[in-house]
Write a protein that binds this DNA or RNA. Structure first.
Lengths: 215, 215
DNA sequence: CGCACAATACGCAGTTCTGCGTATTTATTG
DNA sequence: CAATAAATACGCAGAACTGCGTATTGTGCG
């Protein structure tokens, strides 16, 4: 039995989707939510499920944000975006957020079932049109973000320096030693770096810095 | 009747492919060539066909070059790459050359038939694994040719899995949650990973794993 | 069967990191 | 001159990580 959650703010569409999925006895719907905040709250209580079908446009917290959070916090959960928006910007954002697949709203039950299986097997289920746009994205370069460099988080020179040392796996003590400042100062720099990068630990900071071309 | 050409230098594979395609009465094979030069010469005499199934690795002129030329000279012909190479570099090159789809060699006749129809309808047929790599291409941005040779540290499957979660910045608690094991077990796995990689903290482990091509 | 090894699990102790508050000095800028 | 930002520094508390020892279960191999 494959456990599926549906996140969709429009009741009618959510219901249709649910009916389509339940046409196969292999699936059960274990969660229904109407926005990103809601599903995350539900997952925090119980994340025993395999797949989430996620709308993009929703109030409170949209599907992109929710996907970013969920793929980070529960990497084993597969997320398939399901939306009426077929533009490259939305597709690109969804992919960057970590979505595993991308379907348009009018798919057949068969295609939806197959897509869920594909996602679980590590594939990338896509609607026809989406697949074409994906290739187009690669071919034309992506909207505004093909340059992995020069992202500005407003880090000062000293902070960048500390970040470089952080990325080498040195302890605060060792960094202090290297930069001829105190342990406490290193800590404060790190705090400021984390705040500016909006992360909460060393690993995420390094990851973000690398992706932003800071290292 | 849909007219198809096969370009493939290994006779046995070409024959298998031909048999698979001819399992459906909707298709006929109008050309067989063993390299890029050959198919282009044939097309110059007569290009009355809809689809070309193209290998990548061939003598004289490879599938990428041929695709570049053909999509330029006869834009209405759809080209589906069919190869054993599933690396991002080849995929990227094929897309840039203008290929409409990308299949791996071991596809079923049904999948091949469906792919031809998809290509004709303006879609982008892809094998499972290729679709995933396409998204990965978009996500990571272009294939960096930094060939990280794979180093074997003797990590077990489970340890590799833990390492992947570690690299995402998850806490032991969160990793335990995701893998459905206890906090203590995660700790033990991490210990073993560190010992095998001969490092003493998370950052060094990730660094070494990335350089060794484990992530 | 005995052995090695992977995967599971927990306790203890010590170290390191993270978040928050507070504070001083120096340089820059409106 | 006043405001602001950067760099320096420390205390406290709690969270997370690391190293070491120990142990059980299952699996594969000679």
């Amino acid at each position: 039995m494959i456990r599926v959650a549906i996140v969709e703010d429009i009741g009618r569409i959510a219901e249709t989707l649910k009916q389509k999925i339940l046409l196969s006895p292999d699936f059960e719907i274990v969660n229904m939510a109407t926005n990103g905040k809601e599903i995350i709250q539900q997952l925090q209580k119980d994340h025993a499920l395999e797949v989430i079908i996620m709308d993009i446009n929703m109030p409170e917290m949209d599907g992109i944000e929710a996907t970013t959070f969920i793929t980070q916090r529960w990497p084993n959960i597969k997320i398939i975006m399901s939306t009426v928006f077929d533009d490259e910007q939305n597709l690109f954002n969804a992919i960057m957020a970590g979505a595993n697949g991308y379907l348009l709203k009018d798919e057949t039950p068969q295609k939806i079932h197959r897509s869920i299986y594909e996602a679980l097997e590590g594939g990338a289920p896509m609607s026809q049109m989406i697949a074409r746009k994906a290739l187009s994205l690669i071919k034309t370069g992506k909207p505004e973000s093909s340059k992995t460099e020069n992202v500005d988080y407003g880090l000062s020179e000293r902070e960048t320096e500390v970040l470089e040392h952080l990325s080498k796996g040195l302890s605060y003590e060792q960094i202090a030693d290297n930069l001829f400042i105190s342990y406490g100062t290193v800590r404060k720099h790190v705090e400021n770096i984390y705040r500016k990068l909006r992360v909460n630990n060393r690993t995420e900071a390094i990851d973000k810095a690398q992706k932003g071309g800071l290292l």
